[in-house]
Amino acid sequence: MEYVKCRGKCVANCSAVRCFTFRRESKKYLVKDDLFLSGHRACQGCGATIAIRHVLKVAGRNCIIVQPTGCMEVVSTQYPETSWLVPYIHVAFENAAAVASGISRALKVKGIKAKPIVIAGDGGTVDIGLQSLSGMLERDENVLYICYDNEAYMNTGIQRSGSTPLFAATTTTPSGKLSKGEDRPKKDIAKIAIAHDIKYVATANVAFPLDFMKKVEKALKISGAAFIHILTPCPPGWRIPESKSIEIARLAVDTCMWILYEYENGKYKINYLPTVKKPVKEYLLLQGRFKHLDEKDIETIQKLVDKRYEELLKLAEITIQE
């Protein structure tokens, strides 16, 4: 059997499930009963539902879930059914952070030690929900806000959002003779969250469950607002095979398209960097939404990624060293 060499300090941050540490660390999450039930109507291979399971494994029953309109709300709450074994509320598209603020204050009044957790898509976070999110973060409400980012409005059928990456084809940014797809880079929502000077901001990736669950655990302990931005592939939206969502999510980290980092008490910390930084091409070419790209376009994206990578390295105190 082939095991990836364990780099010692990596603990749960290592992507390789072949690692012994992973096997040891994952045990405590394996036996717990799921509070997000089967029978939901998410597409095959949905990345976001996996992330939700991870959240609930950590949060347990002591939370109230708030969701804006979006895929995960629609697939899990079709009346009279629900997939949620914890209290859950959906109000509208743009106000999940405000609803969670109200819940958080009510729980405080009642002396109940539970925390509202918002689980919102990228559209409900970076676009239409940005105002109420900003208000919530700025007031430092006792709320954990998790944005599952599938990089477009998947619920309505793959329209671009502010979170759609450069050159991705969506139904509203199709590629064509005169178009390369989305013409602007992705909005950096984690940076926006950090600008609110809250105690905890982190990025996560659904292929790195232990890292994500550790972050959720940490964020839940914080009194005040916390924000986690997690990349969750969408097979129909990204035009990838259902079985590949985790593989591709992992590639996003291995190519540094997506960097796992934390911002805590004013300090940046990169949680994981690949041993070998793979070219973004490997990530892009697996996806139908990028199939129209030529070498020059890929080079443009590579440059963007490298720039962001350098920027973060400068900001961060790197804890994983080879």
Binding site: L37, S38, G39, H40, R41, S76, E81, T82, S83, L85
Partner: peptide
């Protein structure tokens, strides 16, 4: 309400 367990996917 009931759970989605009734929905055999």
């Amino acid at each position: 309400q009931k759970t989605t367990l009734v929905n055999k996917t």
